[in-house]
């Protein structure tokens, strides 16, 4: 047996990523804050609870329609904090820069960070910069950590979904991954495709103002909607039924998916959220979402069920059904 190596698919957000975390990383560190594996950790102290999260950002190319690595680094962390009901307050910013990187490009990325931090209302409270030799990193990697205060009376966790709950999705699927892919060498296509990269804290605030009994929120980033729903179904030990006809996918995203054999349900999003809510609150919340710029195209996409525990079932366009699994391996563009 040859020595096991990290594959790109270990970073895809799908099953391999889960296995890597579960088998190699978690066993060493398990503690009550880490164990729920929500998007942020909850740390209790006398004055309430603090949310803490961290994420590293690598993207190729660094600039894409609708954003860049800097914007991504702020939005990703702001969104992870928001998903457990925290108001994001402070971020750290660590840059790992490859020798020879353009200072002009760095300036552009920094000002993009500034702009979106303003929009999200967070402060960059601390930071670090390392420069590594040419070839030791690919241009620029960013890590941000963030803290925020969890709103009192709010309890959001992937463990909270209950049979009968409604599943809401805040908008179109796959815009981010497709916008990035459209810029890659070899796959270039032109179009009006723009990444959905956005800070969702304001939308979340409006939703929690309207309804404090939201059970769970998640942003379907790597691995896409299908993987995120599977994670929640597992954590809450429930089933889910999703209606294919309710899933919003832009024509251009659909077109590229058809062409390259990709499935929009597994594409990464950077400005979308899934909310699991008691069904009697669903319509009201949907209205709140639709009134917000980041939730204009929100849809109620399905229900949490008693049956099919730990599984997500898709009701297809023509009335059939199939199981929606987690992402397995990475999605490679294919011809057959």
């Amino acid at each position: 047996m040859s020595e096991e190596k990290i594959l790109l698919a270990h970073g895809s957000g799908g099953k391999l990523s889960h296995d890597l975390i579960k088998q190699i990383i978690l066993p060493q560190f398990l503690n009550p804050s880490l164990e729920p594996l929500d998007d942020s950790a909850k740390i209790n102290n006398q004055e309430g609870s603090i949310a803490l999260t961290t994420d590293s950002y690598v993207v190729n190319p660094l600039f894409f329609p609708g954003g860049d690595i800097g914007k991504l680094a702020v939005c990703g962390t702001v969104n992870d904090l928001s998903m457990i009901g925290a108001t994001p307050s402070y971020l750290s910013l660590s840059l790992i820069v490859e020798e020879g990187f353009s200072i002009d490009l760095l300036k552009r990325i920094i000002s993009s960070i500034h702009e979106v931090a303003e929009e999200a209302g967070v402060n960059i409270a601390t930071g670090d910069t390392k420069v590594v030799e040419h070839g030791a990193a690919d241009q620029l990697f960013i890590n941000t950590a963030g803290i925020g205060w969890i709103r009192p009376g709010i309890n959001l966790s992937g463990k909270n979904a209950k049979p009968g709950d409604s599943i809401l999705l805040s908008g179109h699927l796959g815009d981010h991954e497709m916008a990035v892919l459209s810029q890659r060498e070899g796959f270039k296509f032109q179009g009006d495709l723009i990444s959905d990269c956005a800070p969702l804290n304001n939308l979340v605030e409006k939703m929690l103002d309207a309804c404090s009994s939201v059970r769970c929120m998640r942003d379907p980033t790597r691995g896409g909607l299908a993987t995120t729903l599977n994670e929640i179904a597992l954590m809450s030990n429930v089933g889910m039924v999703i209606e294919e006809e309710k899933l919003p996918v832009r024509e251009s995203v659909k077109g590229i998916c058809e062409l390259l054999g990709l499935d929009p349900l597994y594409l990464a999003n950077e400005g979308k959220l899934i909310a699991i809510v008691p069904s009697d609150e669903a319509d009201r919340l949907l209205k709140v979402m639709k009134n917000h710029p980041w939730g204009r195209d929100a849809q109620m996409i399905g229900k949490v069920t008693e049956e099919n525990r730990k599984k997500v079932v898709l009701h297809t366009l023509i009335g059939g059904h199939r199981i929606l699994d987690m992402l397995t391996g990475g999605q490679y563009p294919r011809i057959c």
Binding site: L314, T316, I318, G319, G320, R322
Partner: peptide
């Protein structure tokens, strides 16, 4: 056929 759940119907 699987994607649309055709076998089942």
């Amino acid at each position: 056929i699987f994607g649309y759940g055709i076998r089942g119907i």
